[in-house]
Design a protein around this nucleic acid. Structure first.
Lengths: 338, 338
DNA sequence: CTGTTAGCGCTTTCAT
DNA sequence: ATGAAAGCGCTAACAG
């Protein structure tokens, strides 16, 4: 079924090495020879074996990515950036999805193995210290996306500034009682995303700068998800002096808040302003005000970073990059009812 | 950095083959020997090289999937089913995304190569006859998902029945003027999805059975997308006797129809009923009536099918499986205003 | 049961 | 510029 390099060499009447050289565009082949070999390759429909090549090269020609793949629309968009940037390169993209804690550990362990991949991209997961150590020990170049790890090259998002942006926008509109709905801070099931925490920090900073004391009564954390956000938003909206605006740490959660408002008969934005984070696809459809983060770009940049590291095996650099966010005001925010 | 099987053999004072046997759980190793080898393996932190193993085995231990990955939420959900089912197996999942025609052709060519993958899963793409021929010639087992190809194992969705289901539901509610918004029938950019076409066929059958002549004026095709659907929905809703209900071939398009209704000040469902297809995540949020198809399951089943084929290399079987859909009535459908 | 050996298909010296 | 040859790490067939 498959012709080998040996068949080509024999048929072309050249040495094995010459065929290999032609394949690898080595300049050390005369034009006539090259053409003859190329002709035979075409004739035999010869395709070099990836596996044998990898084996001889000692490289897998594979980039692995670990992602809480489908738990969040934002992850898919980052993945898209990765795939697009990797396409056309000599690398294959293998994906490890992570939806449970067990899979999380297993993926971290499996993906970062020299014999499995030449590089690993980790999306929105914060490995524990011992996992970080294992990652280093593997010797496989790693790039973190949407999570900054001191000792690992990372493409981060400026979530704190993003949180400030959202909160400041609300303040600028005249809101004083501003609620926050975000992820649980320390649930292993959340894979220890730090984005929500950082956005909360931004929220608190913005409030403080404006001379508003952040009130614990206005801050709710829950397992990530629309439904869960809806539940805590109910709570938030039924305190004594309910907030006139809510900043949700993700668009998904903002949707839950919107549902809660609907449940309680609160008009948005007249009686309640809502702002999310991410600017996922449907945000525009819903007219949701939000903070846009460069999702696709974060994936693309991480690949570029990884490629640089891969091409320059010496330098023990640990580049960090922080991408910034942008405010997108739409229909769910307005000045509070006086 | 990496210990090899030879190091282990030497250190354990056994032959190379014995270590390999231990690795592969061969019963031809005595318990004491096995334990000794295992101990050395642990001590040396030896991990067998995937690549070398693949090379020796002549198998890639990789399953490739070709998907118009992010063009549709439904594809992501199928992918999720694939990943979940493949996890824990010895196979890696490599993904080829397809967002342009060039990538489509390249992916079809690259993924199905013996030296790259042991099996290929193709999601929602209908390869052209010559591409099908090339696929066969590659000798790599293929399973189609959401597209039935005569000569290829396939996991299909009963889109025609699904289309009938949606349309019949509308008819049952009392609608007579029912519009349809679907994908372009023959745009190469649509990658020749057949689902929209089949859903249209179901729509037409249901109408005909009910004694309603399908009117071309009520049928619109456009490039897949929310915005595009919105545009053609405008057209549809401004004909002389506009439809009182619209069946959109996907939830994404249904959202576009909903937007058009909003634009024109038509109350849904009072003045216009809308039903979609897919039951993607956000459909519930929107209260969108739709037809649910087993997305995750279609991915999972395709992997199972592929595994069967892989494990029984002889039988030139070509299994076909058709999964059926289910009506989900929510808030965007009601009886027409009299 | 276990050690030895012959490749798997390719890249890469090393001579020439 | 090109041929020959030495592995890359593993599996599987072959002797014992």
């Amino acid at each position: 079924m498959g012709a080998t390099i040996r068949d080509v060499a024999r048929k072309a009447g050249v040495g094995l090495g010459t065929v290999s050289r032609v394949l690898n565009n080595s300049p050390l082949v005369s034009q006539p020879t090259r053409e003859r070999v190329l002709a035979v390759i075409a004739e035999l429909r010869y395709k070099p074996s990836q596996i044998a090549r990898s084996f001889a090269l000692g490289r897998t020609l594979t980039i692995a990515t670990i992602a809480p793949f489908f738990t969040r629309p934002s992850v898919v968009e980052r993945l898209r950036g990765i795939e697009a940037t990797l396409a056309g390169s000599e690398y294959n993209l293998v994906v490890f999805n992570v939806e449970t804690i067990e899979r999380r550990a297993a993926s971290l362990r499996d993906a970062a193995r020299r014999d499995r991949s030449d590089g690993v991209l980790i999306i929105s997961l914060v490995p524990a210290p011992d996992e970080v150590a294992a990652l280093h020990e593997s010797g496989v170049p790693i790039v973190m996306i949407d999570a900054l790890i001191d000792t690992l090259p990372s493409v981060g998002i400026d979530n704190t500034s993003g949180g400030m942006l959202a909160t400041q926008a609300l303040i600028d509109l005249g809101h004083r009682r501003i609620g926050f709905v975000g992820d649980l801070l320390d649930d292993p099931l959340t894979f220890q995303f730090t984005s929500s925490r950082d956005r909360l920090a931004g929220y608190q900073q913005a409030l403080t700068s404006a001379g508003i004391a952040p009130s614990p009564a206005y801050i709710e954390h829950t397992v990530h998800g629309r439904y869960e956000a809806r539940l805590v938003a109910h709570k938030l909206l039924q305190v004594a002096e309910p907030p006139s605006a809510i900043f949700a740490a993700s668009d998904t959660q903002a949707m839950g808040v919107l549902e809660a408002a609907r449940d309680l008969g609160l008009a948005v934005p007249e009686q309640l302003s809502v702002i999310g984070f991410d600017d996922i696809d449907i945000a525009e459809y819903l007219g949701l005000s939000t903070v846009r983060q460069p999702l696709f770009e974060s994936g693309a940049r991480s690949v570029e970073l990884l490629m640089t590291i891969l091409s320059d095996p010496v330098a023990p650099v640990c580049p960090k990059e922080i991408l910034s966010c942008e405010l997108v005001l739409r229909a769910t925010t307005s000045a509070p009812a006086s």
